[in-house]
């Protein structure tokens, strides 16, 4: 199971600043660890206009998430960006369902021992504690790239496939396609710094 931690405001606010926002908040893992108060505080400090807010359980369930997106279609349409408070799986589900929308995550996901196997398996989150989805169109290179590279794609990307396994999609090709749809190709010029692999869940 996962533990979720709210990202520092200084990391997220520059990305969403002066954009109208729609907010998703997933409480599905609250029993284990969801930082209810920290998320409320983060949202309370936001100066951006919020067009709507959906609070739900198990955002990682695609059909469930899709139903909420339909229900809040107008508010989401009105928003310029969607901000997701959930684990990395939930953020990837929303990003994949709203491919043409700017989708950002407000959380880092950390590993917590035990309780494995309860979440949906469609997307992978390595629970690395340093969520990178805001720069990669909501597609995770840490979990999905064979070499986990943060400055991809490497020279082994051919016809959208990874050289390591012809049945495997090149995550960085998907990232580029998604960023192109969202007019965010400039993010590819950003130099991804060496990752902190040592992150442990907050106690």
């Amino acid at each position: 199971m996962l533990a979720v931690q709210v990202k520092p405001e200084e990391e997220v606010v520059p990305l969403i600043s002066s954009k109208k926002l729609f907010v998703f908040e997933c409480l599905g893992c609250r029993e284990v660890h969801y930082p209810v108060e920290e998320a409320a505080q983060f949202l309370g400090n936001l100066k951006e206009e919020v067009t709507g807010r959906a609070t739900l359980d198990y955002l990682c369930n695609r059909e469930f998430a899709r139903a909420y997106i339909d229900e809040y279609a107008d508010e989401i349409e009105e928003a310029q960006a969607v901000l997701v408070f959930s684990c990395g799986v939930g953020a990837q589900v929303i990003s994949s369902l709203l491919e043409d929308k700017l989708v950002y995550t407000g959380c880092d996901t950390l590993y917590l021992h035990g309780f494995q196997g309860l979440t949906a398996k469609e997307f992978d989150c390595d629970q690395c504690g340093e969520c990178y989805l805001n720069y990669t169109g909501g597609i995770c290179p840490v979990a999905l790239c064979s070499k986990h590279i943060l400055n991809g794609p490497c020279g082994g990307s051919q016809d959208g496939k990874c050289e390591v396994d012809p049945d495997m999609t090149c995550a960085w090709q998907d990232i580029i396609d998604r960023l192109a749809r969202r007019g965010q190709l400039h993010l590819l010029e950003r130099l991804g710094a060496p990752k902190n692999w040592s992150v442990e869940p907050a106690s």
Partner: peptide, 28 residues
């Protein structure tokens, strides 16, 4: 270089490291 993936070599069951990538190595 990032390096050819271990799967292609003569020890395909080895653990790949990839702590940093080639671009991060250049900067380092």
């Amino acid at each position: 270089l990032t390096g050819d993936h271990q799967k292609f070599g003569n020890h395909p069951t080895a653990k790949g490291v990839y702590d940093v990538d080639s671009i991060q190595l250049v900067k380092m």
